[in-house]
Simulated scan of single mutants.
Amino acid sequence: MTRELPGTEIPTAAILLPTDEMCAAVDGFLAASPAARAWDVETAFDWDRAAADRLTEGQRSAVQFVTYIEDHLPGYFDVYQRYFPVDGRVDQDTFVHNRELYHFTVRWALEEDTHARALARYQQAAGMAERSTLRDELAVEGRKPFDLPYRHPVQFFAYALVQEKATQLYYQSLREVSGDPVLAAVLSRLARDEARHFSFMADVVGRYLRTQGDAVVEPIREVVAGFRMPLADTMRGYWRWALRIADVADYDHTAAYAHLVRIIDRAVDTRTEPLDELVRFLDRCRALT
């Protein structure tokens, strides 16, 4: 059974990041990510050398798991389309902001889709799965809805900040234990991309903190308090599988919270009491894991 998506509350210019600030963040990301540095699935790796028999059963399971997560890209992209639309549902000021953000989201979506294709290609090349079978298996989860029903725009970026950093750290950890050099090369590429995506989200969250101050503290706290990685609420057996892959390579999404604290400290000259409480809350979350 699939759940219905709640009504979409489109953020308006009144609470969005000033457009010039969003434009600067997008320009910075694109300048650090020129097309000339892009990689493609077809030529970046020596697929003929991929061999799943070099992996442990746990490592193969981890590859299968992250393929599902990356392949849900249409759902993730749809969130930005619904909450930051570039059409007549919004006034002109909001449209201008969203159009600037769209320059990032389409590049981000292309890179994330490349991740999904690379992981699927690895499974096929390494002998883990037949293409048609894998395609049908991914469709089972891919058809399920994905949503981030937040009330403040900063929350979408705070969520992605934690998710992208946690994913980067896991890929790096899985790469270190991988028995197949081809898989290690794939994971290196993915981790570098996730690091750049994290940097963009961190830049945007920092700009929200500088321009809106304490007004965004509680929205960010709400993200941390209810954080779940993508598909946690829809994939059957998610938590059992997630615990298994955490045994294969170090994984703990709360490791990303230390990076959020550094973003806070870079964004403000002096912490206010609400910011101090947010940092204490982040520290408590990390201590519980």
Rank of each mutant, 00 (worst) to 15 (best):
Y171H: 09
Y171V: 00
Y171Q: 03
Q172P: 01
L174W: 05
R175D: 00
E176A: 01
E176D: 09
S178D: 02
S178K: 03
S178M: 04
G179N: 05
G179T: 02
G179V: 07
G179I: 10
G179E: 04
G179Y: 10
D180H: 06
D180F: 05
D180T: 06
P181I: 05
P181R: 06
P181G: 04
V182S: 02
V182R: 03
L183Y: 01
S188V: 11
S188G: 13
S188T: 14
S188L: 12
L190M: 14
A191N: 11
A191C: 13
A191Y: 13
R192D: 15
R192Y: 11
R192V: 11
R192A: 15
D193A: 11
E194K: 13
E194D: 11
E194M: 13
A195H: 14
R196C: 01
R196N: 03
F198P: 05
S199N: 06
S199P: 00
S199H: 07
F200S: 02
A202D: 10
A202E: 13
D203N: 08
V204C: 01
V205M: 08
G206V: 08
G206R: 07
R207K: 09
R207C: 02
R210Q: 07
T211G: 03
D214S: 07
A215D: 03
A215K: 01
V216W: 03
V216Q: 03
V216L: 02
V217E: 06
I220N: 04
I220M: 14
I220S: 02
R221C: 01
E222Y: 05
V223T: 08
V223M: 10
V224H: 02
V224E: 00
G226P: 01
G226M: 04
F227W: 05
M229W: 09
M229L: 13
M229S: 12
P230E: 12
L231H: 03
D233Y: 04
D233I: 03
D233Q: 07
T234S: 14
T234P: 04
T234Q: 08
T234K: 04
M235K: 06
M235H: 00
G237V: 10
G237W: 11
Y238H: 13
Y238I: 10
W239P: 05
W239I: 08
R240I: 12
W241P: 00
W241T: 12
A242M: 15
A242D: 10
A242Q: 13
A242I: 13
L243D: 14
R244T: 15
R244N: 11
R244C: 11
I245D: 06
A246S: 14
A246Q: 09
V248H: 08
V248Y: 14
D250Y: 03
Y251M: 07
Y251G: 05
H253W: 15
T254V: 11
A255M: 08
A256F: 09
A256T: 06
H259C: 05
H259D: 13
H259T: 13
V261G: 00
V261F: 01
V261L: 02
R262D: 11
R262H: 08
I263N: 07
R266D: 14
A267L: 09
V268H: 11
V268K: 10
D269Y: 11
T270F: 13
T270A: 15
R271Y: 12
R271D: 10
R271H: 11
T272N: 07
T272A: 04
T272H: 10
T272F: 09
E273D: 12
E273Q: 15
P274E: 12
L275D: 09
D276I: 15
D276Q: 15
E277V: 15
L278S: 08
